[in-house]
């Protein structure tokens, strides 16, 4: 009986004795250039950001690299060098009406982006291969290559406010899309939904905010970065692919809706999918570790060229 009497104490003493912490050494890693560049068909300039990678335990800040040279090639022919520039984005909103009945706007600064830019004489062309090459002191030259793919053939589009039902029974807005896939090749698609921010910037270009899309009712649809959806044609190669997408009800008062279907490379598909998985896994000790892939040789990051078909609901 003495044993029984003392067994609780012994047990809890054992529990407290369980935890031990030991330092682990991680080998040094060579710092690499990190290139980020996204081009959408029709754009008249190339933008790129360049940072560097650091050892996981390094106390330094990565920061941008501004003494680099970044060159842009089309089919291995130099188009030009990207220059370090500031890109300023303003927005304005109506604050009233003057005595003549004209709207009065207030303007504010949304963002100043410093990046490398190259203005193009004409948009990039479908079927051509483009390369970004970044060089900076103390780093191996890093480069990435992408081809501008044909725009997706979206044969049908329909938007129905509050026509869908979410998993918890609430009503949602429904988008119905039909994509005719090109046979005989691996195609990857990204679908993104944007809402007009209801403000016009001073250049009268719209400022679009991305909205989360849900596609769990359609087989083969996966979540991508920033609320976009991804799909690949292994389930529907060469056939018509009908997708039902939903989003929380949109208040369309003074707001336009823009749905963009993009042809993307496998590199961008894997990158976007893994970035989403990376965020989902953050802080979850039970999640499988995520390796965010790169298409940058001798470096990290992503270079993506996308061709899109878009629909605007006004």
């Amino acid at each position: 009986m003495k044993l029984l009497k003392y067994s609780p104490l012994m047990f809890f003493a054992l529990l407290f004795a369980c935890e031990q912490v030991v330092d682990i050494e991680i080998p040094e890693q060579d710092s690499q250039l990190v290139l980020s560049s996204f081009y959408e068909s029709g754009d008249l300039r190339i933008k790129a950001n360049l940072t560097r990678s650091l050892h996981i335990l390094s106390p330094e800040n990565a920061g941008d690299i501004w003494d680099a040279s970044i060159r842009f090639y089309e089919n291995e022919v130099l188009i030009g060098q990207l220059e370090d520039q500031l890109d300023t984005l303003y927005a304005s909103y109506q604050i009233g009406i003057d005595s003549l009945g004209n709207p009065i706007y207030d303007t504010y600064l949304i963002d100043i982006q410093r990046a490398y830019f190259l203005d193009l004489a004409a948009p990039l062309q479908t079927g051509k291969t483009y390369k970004l090459l970044a060089e900076a002191p103390d780093f191996k030259p890093a480069f990435a290559t992408q081809e501008l793919l044909p725009a997706p053939n979206v044969v049908s589009f329909d938007y129905k406010p509050r026509a869908g039902v979410s998993l918890d029974g609430g009503s949602v807005d429904l988008f119905k899309l039909g994509i005719q896939d090109l046979a005989g090749e691996d195609n990857y698609y990204e679908i993104a939904l944007y809402l007009d921010d209801a403000y016009d910037d001073i250049d009268t270009t719209r400022f679009w905010q991305q909205r989360y899309l849900e596609g769990s009712f359609t087989p083969g649809v996966e979540e991508g970065q920033g609320g976009s959806l991804l799909t690949r044609d292994d389930l529907f190669n060469g056939n018509l692919y009908n997708i039902d997408l939903t989003t929380w009800p949109i208040d369309t008062t003074n707001r336009d809706i823009r749905l963009v279907v993009k042809s993307i490379s496998r590199d961008k598909y894997l990158f976007s999918k893994s970035i989403n998985a990376y965020w989902n896994a953050e802080g979850n000790p039970f999640a499988e570790p995520v390796i965010v892939p790169t298409n940058v040789e001798n470096g990290l990051g992503i270079f993506s060229i996308e061709n899109s078909t878009e629909f605007i609901v006004e």
Binding site: S36, F38, N49, I56, I110, G226
Partner: peptide, 16 residues
């Protein structure tokens, strides 16, 4: 699998 390096990547729409 251990993280061995870290890097800052700019993503589309990283305005804010």
């Amino acid at each position: 699998t251990l993280p061995v390096s870290r890097a800052e990547v700019y993503l589309p729409n990283d305005y804010y």
